[in-house]
Every structure is written in structure tokens, then in C-alpha cells.
Design a protein around this nucleic acid. Sequence first.
DNA 1: ATGCATGAGAT
DNA 2: TCTCATGCATA
Length: 334
Amino acid sequence: MLLIRITLYPLLIHILMLSGMKNIEANVHQGDIFSGLNDGILSRAEALADIGKHQSSHAHTQMSTQLKHDVMYHHSMGGPPQRPLQMHHTMDGLDMLDPAGSMTTLTPMSDTPTSHHQLHGSYHGMNHMMGHHHGGPLGGHTPGRHYGHHGHPGAHHPAMAAAVAAAGLHPDTDTDPRELEAFAERFKQRRIKLGVTQADVGKALANLKLPGVGALSQSTICRFESLTLSHNNMIALKPILQAWLEEAEAQAKNKRRDPDAPSVLPAGEKKRKRTSIAAPEKRSLEAYFAVQPRPSGEKIAAIAEKLDLKKNVVRVWFCNQRQKQKRMKFAAQH
DNA sequence: ATGCATGAGAT
DNA sequence: TCTCATGCATA
């Protein structure tokens, strides 16, 4: 299915663009209902989407639309937004739980490092206490200091370079996409060699008591390794992960073991349900996005209505889509 | 590994 | 309202 989408989509766009208005306009009577959508651009996108539907329905039996209800849970956490710095989640039973201050464990190796938590994170209870510890593990969220706003990696002026150097920073060496890519790969290999999962690394990061650095999720570690983070995000995380890697390998030399234990699950809280946008709707959204990556609120509402999706779902979809475009991977020509 | 979501800070 | 960094849930 993915293959179909990838190969078909660009083609459809071309069909659309090259075929001019005539045929397309003919396919849009339905759009009249939504006057807001009928301003050409969206209409055309919609036509495109329709073509996509027809094509794909031939390509494979289209599963009927998935659930489209949003289902928001709102774990009422009356507590303050916890800081990632000192929060301790012990459900995994594989890290901290340092009764005697053995908190220096940076490699949360369990008896079987790669067995549990990887596939189906067996930590269901941490929801209510973990919730969403935003603000991130980085100090980078502080108003004044945002990472670097350099749009392009290698674009440094000599004067700038000097200034940066003076500031005690190492510019290109760390910001170079290739360096990042290389590091990410090295990191992954060595991590695996240590028998540590991505989730393990994320948690161990909190034990590495670097200022302003808390735990991270398996998702983030994964994204770092696969370069699916923004350039700035990669740059910010690199030194942290590098620090962990070095510590972990150091500790690996003089083995150690820890009698793990508790995984007392505090038990239940409403679990957040992920809304799933069905393939047809997704295709439409992609079509719209190709023409208008940043639709106005009105258009979003119109699109939402047309696709029978919650407006917020559509809005978030566009946000995520934009974010996706900005990610590293092949974004910056390598 | 990745889709949909949240939340803080910037616009 | 958007962007960004992140995360839970899930394929």
C-alpha cells in the first residue's frame, strides 16, 4: 500500500497540474456545497484526491473507513507539570529504584536487555504519573535561548565562525549533517553492542545527571538514530547522547548487576486513544497539502467537514505534515 | 518505526 | 495559531 501511495501520488499531481482546469472543474460540482472550498486551489486538490481514490480502489480492496472519532482523554492531572529532571518512573523495574543510592546506573541493563519493553512497551502504568512531561529534557526551552536559527548547516560566515569559536562552541563539526548522520549511526551500533534498547537509553539519560537533561522517550531516541528529527533537534541531542554513550561504555567495562524488582503498576487511568485517519481521507489531505500546506482556519474547517473529520484533527494533521517536511533525513540534500 | 497529540513559547 | 520538541499508542 505504501508503495502505491508513493508511486502514485506524484503522478497524480502531475496529471492535475498538466491537465489544466477544464477536466478538473467538471469534477467539482460537489464542492459547491462548500463555497469556502471552491476557490480553485482546494477544488483542484479535491479533484486530485478523487482521482487518487479511484485509482487505489483498483489497486487494492480498500478497507472501509476506520474509526474517525477523536476520543480525547484528559487525564486530569491536578498536579503541576512535572519536570523531566527529577521524575522517577520505576514501573519498568529496570532502572533507578536505587534504594541505596546506586543511582549512578547509566546502563539500565535488565536481565534480558533486549527482551521486554522493546516490542510492546510493558510499562502501561506510567501513564498517570508520566503523563506528558513537557518542557523537554533540554534547557533549550528557555525563552532566551533557542537553538540556532541557521537555516542551513554549512552556511557560516567567517566572522560568525570566529564568534562561535570564541563562544567556546564547535560549529561545523557538530552541525554538519554528515557528522550528525555518522554519529547517529555510530551511536546506534554501539548502543546495540551494549545490549541497550532505545527505551533504556531514554531512561538512563535521567541518571546521567546533566543539568537540564531528563529522560527521553523511545520515540525520540529512535528518531535520533534514524535522523527523523529537525536539524536543530539533532544538534541539541547529540552531545547528550554522546555523553551517555561514553559513560555507558565506561561502565560496561567493569560489569555490574542490579537486582531489579518492583513494577507495581499504580493501575489505571483512561488511556489515550489514537485517532486513525483512513486511507481515503489521508489521500485527500495529502492532495490539499500539496497545493496549500498552510490552509487558513476556515479552509481547515471546510476540509474537515468535507472529510468528516474533526477540525482539530485536520489542523494537527497539517501541523505534523509541515513538521515532517522539515525533518532531517533527506531534507537537507546529502 | 511512525501516526496523531500536547504544550510552551513565538508570531 | 503556528512552530518545535516530544511523547503515548500502535502497526
